[in-house]
Amino acid sequence: MYAALFPGQGSQRLGMGQALYGASSAAREVLDRAEAALPGLLRLMWEGPEEALTLTENQQPALLAVGYAAYRAFLEAGGKEPLLAAGHSLGEWTAHVAAGTLALEEALRLVRLRGRYMQEAVPPGEGAMAAILKLSREEVEEAVKGLKGVEIANLNAPEQTVISGKKEAVERAAEALKAKRARVVLLPVSAPFHSSLMESARERLAEDLAQVAFRKPRFPVYSNVTARPEEDPERIRGLLLAQITSPVRWVEILWDMEKRGIRRFLEFGSGEVLKGLVARTLNEAEALSVADPESLRKALEVAHA
């Protein structure tokens, strides 16, 4: 029994998915379908330039394609479907593709639009995000209370919270938090994600989502907004929209999974960010990544143990 996790922005790297493409017919099928839907995507993922890959509208479909390809490779090699699934921000979309809520091609088109709308919601240089380490959520909330233009964006781990908003406000909040002995890391992002400044992106994406059919997922997928597993297709549609301007409640998602008996987690896609967050949040949990043939082999050994 395990939970499937799918990463969000920041996990991309040049060459991601290429080894799985060569080793797994299922991964190859997924990535070929992604290339047919968005021509040029595979070359961008494998050859760059890296600056283009990191653009929000390119990064989001690339990470979705690689995450789903890794998941399908795992199933092809004998792995079973998860009891539950969750994705961090963009990764929630990948989780829904894995669960059958959305078709791959539809999801790729939608997350490219999502990324474009998010990028265009705030002029370059006007927004910022910062990770706050070594302070609890409550301490961060107390420190930013009353500061206009800054909001809690990600609750990643018990002592890792991300703030988002207008650049000047985030910088003021960062100084206030440093005075409380927090470690503050300004994030290299192009917009203030998961804040009210993304409202125009939410409104634009609503029109596109209204035209897409959602199906009941084969297994429950957690919403970043509610931190609960969701199965109703229309509710999922609304929550994916709300997610754009709402905090990612990752800590609560992991805690809820633990309460339901989950002790094993597999992160499908590029990088090991979520594997690290599991280690920082849960004391008695095992987390592995599935990103290439070697990590796939190790995940299968654990899954069948």
Rank of each mutant, 00 (worst) to 15 (best):
L63I: 11
Y2S: 08
K180Q: 14
S200N: 08
S190Y: 07
S24N: 05
D292I: 08
K145R: 14
I236H: 13
V290Q: 05
G67V: 03
R43A: 13
E230W: 13
A143H: 13
L296E: 02
K167D: 03
S136P: 07
E47A: 10
A291S: 15
H88V: 06
N283D: 11
T245A: 12
R13F: 13
A206R: 15
L110T: 07
Q119G: 00
R237K: 15
L55K: 14
A77K: 14
K166M: 06
R237N: 12
I253V: 15
L102P: 03
A128G: 01
Y71Q: 07
L41I: 06
R116K: 14
S24Q: 09
A77Y: 07
A157D: 10
V248L: 07
I244V: 13
I152Q: 07
L135Q: 08
S246V: 07
N283W: 13
A173L: 13
A130R: 06
V251Y: 11
A176M: 14
S11L: 06
V221T: 02
K167Y: 10
A73C: 11
Q211N: 03
R228H: 05
G10C: 10
T245G: 08
E139H: 04
L75M: 07
N224E: 06
R297F: 03
P220K: 06
S136I: 09
G115K: 02
Q211K: 15
I262Y: 05
T245W: 14
E207C: 01
H96T: 02
A98M: 00
E47Y: 02
P82E: 02
H96G: 00
L296V: 02
P123L: 11
N224A: 05
L63G: 01
D292V: 03
S190P: 06
G40A: 10
E159R: 15
T161Y: 13
G17T: 08
V184K: 02
V111H: 09
N224Q: 04
G125N: 10
W93A: 00
A121D: 06
K259L: 03
Q9P: 11
E284Y: 09
A37E: 14
A107N: 03
S25K: 09
R43M: 00
A19F: 04
E50Y: 01
L197S: 01
A174T: 03
G10N: 09
L104T: 03
A99L: 12
A227R: 14
A85L: 01
R28M: 09
E199R: 15
G269C: 12
V162N: 05
R72T: 04
V30M: 10
I152R: 13
L63W: 03
A174Q: 10
E105T: 05
M1I: 12
E284P: 00
R116L: 11
L83Y: 11
K298Q: 14
I244W: 08
H304V: 03
R260F: 01
T101K: 06
L197K: 10
G79P: 11
R33K: 13
A73S: 12
F265G: 00
S24G: 08
L274M: 01
P61L: 05
L133K: 09
E138M: 01
L102C: 09
P233V: 12
T245M: 12
G17Q: 02
T54H: 08
